[in-house]
């Protein structure tokens, strides 16, 4: 395959950055998207140029690092996958492909396609945990009965990998799907009840302080989420938030 790539290049956080064009020949449709970028980077290195910085780690859709906005869509054109799971057969010979970093004020660009997603970590630290006494007398997990439905729904919420595609694709850069998933995964389980009110209050407060936008319920996040996290999680968070506020 022959491709024209239009890639965002930005030296560092302060640089203004711009789109730079690259031509690639001989790309196999069986390559993954990241392998295609590896090929381009090797060519740049061979020419003594600065390779394109991009995040990646597991390359099997579980770490959530590979954040790229490809041809106007988070993680590219296919549904429920990350960029590392995207293959060149999803494109055609002669295509022009735009590759940009996530755009959100709360996710500043560090270099090229790499953004700082530590805002998500701070939201998680604000309440995405349960406090357990681990001083040697922990009880057997099976002593706490959980309905199959609650366990399944909590597990679905817990599959969020914190990739940030929801923020990137939202017209408001809202983090509601991520935070909704994190709040839900605990709200659905008995272990999460003790700190439920504080959790949702603190996580929403941190989310707002980080500068993410408000939710307009466009549903773009749900469509672009590689793990199929449902909007029901946002509704659940809204309920939890209202409940916590009514408690005072």
């Amino acid at each position: 395959m022959k491709l024209t790539l239009k890639i965002w290049r930005q030296k560092d956080a302060k640089d203004r950055g711009k789109i730079v064009d690259y031509q690639l020949d001989d790309i196999s449709p069986d390559m993954s998207f990241l392998e295609m970028l590896d090929v381009l980077n090797q060519q740049l290195i061979d020419k003594d140029q600065d390779p394109i910085a991009f995040d990646h780690d597991c390359r099997e859709g579980i770490c959530g690092m590979c954040s790229m906005y490809i041809n106007g869509r988070a993680h590219g054109p296919d549904r429920e996958i990350t960029v590392c799971q995207l293959h060149m057969r999803s494109f055609s010979d002669g295509d022009t492909i735009y590759i940009e970093p996530w755009r959100a004020k709360a996710f500043p660009v560090i270099k090229d396609l790499v953004v700082d997603r530590s805002a998500f970590d701070r939201i998680q630290q604000a309440g995405g945990f349960i406090s357990v006494n681990t001083s040697g007398n922990t009880q057997d997990a099976n002593n706490i009965l959980i309905s199959k439905h609650a366990a399944d729904t909590a597990m679905d919420a817990a599959t969020c990998i914190g990739c940030g595609a929801c923020v990137a694709s939202c017209k408001n850069s809202s983090a509601m799907l991520f935070v909704g998933a994190k709040v839900s995964q605990y709200a659905l389980l008995p272990q999460g009840q003790v700190e439920a009110a504080d959790r949702v209050m603190n996580m929403v407060k941190q989310m707002d302080e980080e500068g993410f936008g408000n939710c307009t319920n466009t549903g773009a996040c749900e469509v672009e989420c590689p793990k199929g996290i449902s909007l029901e999680n946002i509704a659940r968070m809204n309920r939890e938030y209202l409940k916590a506020n009514l408690k005072g």
């Binding site: 106007g72 004020k105 408001n172 809202s174 408000n214 672009e224």
Partner: peptide
């Protein structure tokens, strides 16, 4: 909401998701 994204995408195709 506008203020939460200071740099726009060069290419954006939101019709695919909303």
């Amino acid at each position: 909401n506008k203020a939460s994204r200071s740099v726009r995408y060069s290419k954006n195709s939101p019709s695919g998701n909303s």
